[in-house]
Amino acid sequence: MTPGVPWPDIAWLLAVAAMTAYLLLGGADFGGGVWDLFAWGQDATLQRRAIAQAMGPVWEANHVWLIFLLILLFTGFPIAFHQLVIGLYVPLNLILLGIILRGAAFVFRAHGRRGVGQQSLWGRIFGSASSLTVVLLGAALAAVSAGAPLTAAWRSWLSPFAILTGLFALAAAAYLAATYLTLEASGSLRATFRRRALLAGQAAGFAAILDLGLMSFEAPRLFLRLVAPDVLGLVLLVGLLGVGSYVSLRARHDGLGRFLAAAALSVMLWSWAAAQWPYIIYPGFTVIRSAAPDLALRQVLTLVPFGLLLLVPSLWLLLHVFKGRLPLEGEGGRRPKPAR
């Protein structure tokens, strides 16, 4: 075997990459659920339809990143995975419940009597399950960073820091979704989603600052690492990108706004990963000490490039066909435009 190849580190990098993809793609779908639930105004029906159209063709593919993450975790880091599934038993079950409900409800609603548009029971389930699941995902991430023993039942993922992190995740997902939708919708919907995005952006910024404050008490190691010289640059970059995206959006540079929003959240995740390093679960479970043996890691990781060879062109095709320059049907497309 080739000595010196740091297979555990590569596996962890891939896990962070899968998290990033899930954040940018799946996260936006969760945010879509939030805006579906809270659709208000005269064009609420159109908003829901635009969200459903944007998500319809892609949500199952977006969702697979989570499965990849799970597989990477139990394949690459069985020891940390073992601790996660026992320690976070309750929130992981709730997250699963949310994922099942929102996925099923999204499709059930489209086939139901009312269809998409007016609020319906399955529509409410889709929206609320999406919202709660993001909060829980954020809380779970906080729990593995805070240092309270995971097994201390409620304390780890229901601490104020965890909950605030969850709420931040909610605002961030809503922001991301609204910036995507601003670009994909047309006509008056564009302005509506831009306003929603700005609202969510303010909430996310506010929550982020509060969260950093709470973190300094409740997750002091993470906080100290975030402000340490080697990571601080990333954190500042997040702030810069976030503000930049907000400003671009206000100035109606929607494309730039979306790009910067996605960049801000990616860099934020990476700064978490950098600050969390070398731990997967702090304290006690480091990347190295939780990892599977090198041979097993090498075999699984060498599958990845082959898989990507299949997936990347396919994903490109999917996005090209549905997210290209063609406007969404319903507004600007074949259907009559709503009154402005």
Binding site: T75, P78, H82, V85, A292, A296, L297, Q299, V300
Partner: peptide, 10 residues
């Protein structure tokens, strides 16, 4: 999964 995760993961 602790015992077999790294195997069945492939």
């Amino acid at each position: 999964m602790l015992f077999a995760g790294s195997t069945i993961g492939a």
